[in-house]
Amino acid sequence: MRVPLSLMALLAALISTAPAAAEGGPAWDACVALTSTPDQRVKACSSVIDTKSESGRRLAGAYCNRGHGLTEKRELDAALSDLDEAVRLAPDYACPYNNRGRVYSFKRDYDRAIADYDQAIKLDPSLGLVYNNRGESRFNKGDLDGALADFDAAIKRDPNYAMAYGNRGLVSYRKHDMAHAITDYTMRIKLAPDLLAYIDRGNVYRDSEQLDRAAADYGEAIRLAPTDARGWRNRGMIRLFQGDNKGGLSDYDKALQYDPSDVFSWNNRGQARLRLGDKQGAIADFRKALELKPGLSSAQESLRKLGAL
């Protein structure tokens, strides 16, 4: 499950409800700005906190936002300290509960994450992002039905929430409900097309034996991110399935150019070379696969059949 990379929209929505104290100034503006980088956010929010220019909920907002920035920097213990302080300052404020839940999720403490998301939802049930985040924690605990209900709730509150469609599609995929998975991934692509959206839908098409559609989606992933190995190696596999060994070889060449550490690309390129009659090239690729993953049974078996093990 992909954790959303940013909680900026939630931060903005919640900060805007803070009491209108004095004008915040440049530090406050950067602390809450949607465009601030994690480093900029931490620096600006630290200035607000250190200068004691805010109090009450706005001070809690500075701690909440700095906690967000620290979370993005994966300084999780420091983030947790800030979010605890934000909760202490404003226990009726949903922002720190949501952001603290995210820290616990990164720490794989999903029960605490869910408890914080529950509290955030209790305080503000209109926030689709919190339902999405709770759904991710439930998914990571193996509660697929609970996750599905949360992603439904997130989409109900924000029908244009691309991440929630992708997450709901993943739950359907895990439940082997391919039709609903394709529908949700298609909506995800409509709202926010990117490499992972096409790869995710391509995987569903692949497992549904709709190989031409899978290849087309992996092709779109390649178009959007031509230096990312994932599109190339996924399409390479489909081409091998379809008997297009030259096309598969070409795709695996590209995959290994961009990710030479992927053991399965070496193994699969070896299969393509073997099918094309390049015995020595196949042996070299299978040996490289074994070098990267000693004990890989498919590479060992191929080398035995070739008399090279």
Rank of each mutant, 00 (worst) to 15 (best):
M1K: 10
M1E: 09
V3Y: 11
V3F: 12
L7F: 11
A9Y: 11
A9E: 15
L10S: 08
L10D: 09
L10Y: 09
L11C: 15
I15Q: 07
A18T: 12
G24N: 05
G25N: 05
C31W: 05
L34A: 14
L34K: 15
P38R: 06
Q40E: 15
Q40R: 13
K43R: 15
C45R: 03
S47Y: 12
V48I: 14
V48S: 08
I49C: 09
T51Q: 15
R57L: 13
L59P: 03
R66H: 07
G69T: 02
R74W: 15
E75N: 15
D77F: 13
S81F: 10
D82Y: 03
D84L: 10
E85S: 07
A86W: 01
A86S: 13
V87N: 06
L89P: 05
P91L: 10
P91W: 07
D92N: 11
A94D: 09
A94K: 06
P96M: 05
R100E: 03
G101P: 05
G101K: 05
R102I: 10
Y104E: 01
S105Q: 10
S105G: 12
F106Y: 15
K107N: 09
K107D: 09
K107P: 06
R108C: 08
R112H: 13
A113I: 00
I114F: 01
D118I: 01
Q119C: 06
G128Y: 00
N133T: 01
R134I: 00
G135E: 04
E136S: 06
R138H: 00
R138M: 04
F139M: 07
N140D: 12
D145L: 10
G146L: 00
L148V: 03
F151L: 02
A153F: 04
K156F: 09
K156Y: 08
D158C: 07
P159G: 10
M163W: 10
A164F: 05
A164P: 08
Y165C: 03
G166T: 12
R168Q: 02
K175H: 05
H176G: 01
A179Y: 11
H180P: 04
A181P: 01
D184R: 04
M187G: 04
R188W: 12
L191H: 00
R201S: 04
R201L: 02
R201D: 00
N203I: 11
Y205K: 09
Y205G: 00
D207F: 11
Q210W: 07
D212L: 10
D212Y: 03
D212G: 15
Y218P: 00
R223K: 15
A225S: 15
R230Q: 13
R230H: 11
R235Q: 03
M237H: 14
M237A: 15
F241I: 07
G247N: 07
S250V: 11
Y252N: 05
Y252C: 00
K254F: 07
L256A: 00
Q257C: 03
D259T: 03
V263W: 03
S265L: 07
N267V: 12
R269P: 11
A272I: 03
L274V: 06
L274W: 12
R275I: 02
D278Q: 04
K279A: 08
Q280S: 14
G281I: 02
A284I: 01
R287Q: 14
R287C: 04
A289N: 01
L292T: 02
K293G: 08
K293I: 02
G295N: 06
S297F: 14
S298G: 13
A299L: 08
Q300G: 09
S302D: 10
K305L: 13
L306H: 01
L309S: 12
